[in-house]
């Protein structure tokens, strides 16, 4: 598995774990300045762990939808120059703000990812990476709606949470629909379930033509 630039593997307690270089933020273990990036707390780390080709070496800027408390964002910020971190919920937002204050690369935005027009006046149109981790309906459609923010050749890493789309529907059919919707806008490269790290989640890697 080739890892994206800025992300390495470290051995801790006899186990090989993903890590990024920077000051710790949430009590994660560190090895020589490298912070362990747990796949159980991050959909993006899980996507890398299950072997999806999450590559963004060319990227310097990322747009992150569903930044939550900023765990994954903090790791991305170790590897990139600028991460636009969009989060709508005030509660995790507090934590995200603390993380953002400690990391130069993070541009936090308390905005609704379902309404990109509310931050189009802030975010660039040539981001090299889109990461999405939302717990809402229409996750694939939201990812597709963010095409204008991405440069040609940009990487799209989306995790689809089946339970947020439709509790009553079959998980696999939810994923199929999501893949179809994404494939209308992007080139879907690969997808995989994120078990055992996250139940009922599908990780999808796609590219902008």
């Amino acid at each position: 598995m080739t890892l994206p630039a800025g992300i390495e593997e470290v051995t801790i307690g006899g186990e090989t774990r993903l890590a990024t270089e920077g000051p710790p933020v949430y009590g994660e273990p560190t090895v020589d300045g490298w912070r362990v990036w747990g796949a159980g707390r991050s959909k993006l780390a899980a996507m890398i762990e299950v072997g999806l080709p999450v590559q963004f070496d060319a990227a310097t800027m990322a747009l992150y939808l569903g930044a939550g408390a900023g765990t994954t964002v903090s790791h991305l910020a170790d590897a990139l120059d600028r991460v636009y971190a969009v989060e709508f919920a005030p509660r995790p937002g507090r934590r995200l703000l603390t993380v953002a204050k400690e990391r130069e690369a993070i541009i936090p935005l308390l905005k609704d990812a379902r309404r990109p027009e509310t931050y189009s006046h802030v975010v660039e149109s040539d981001c090299g990476l889109l990461v999405q981790d939302l717990a809402t309906v229409d996750q694939a459609r939201i990812a597709a709606a963010h095409r204008p923010f991405l440069a040609d050749g940009a990487t799209v890493a989306v995790s689809i949470k089946a339970r947020s789309e439709d509790v009553t529907a079959e998980v696999s059919s939810v994923f199929e629909t999501a893949l179809e919707v994404l494939d209308e806008t992007y080139d879907v490269v690969e997808h995989a379930r994120l078990e055992p790290y996250h139940d009922d989640h599908l990780g999808i890697v796609a590219r902008v033509d």
Binding site: R82, P90, G93, R94, L97, A100, E104, I107, P108, L110
Partner: peptide, 21 residues
């Protein structure tokens, strides 16, 4: 540019948080 944007976005985020919670 990055520094200006970051200062402004941190201030905006904080103000939004205050308004909401």
């Amino acid at each position: 540019y990055h520094d200006r944007l970051r200062d402004a976005s941190l201030a905006a985020f904080e103000a939004d948080l205050e308004a909401l919670t």
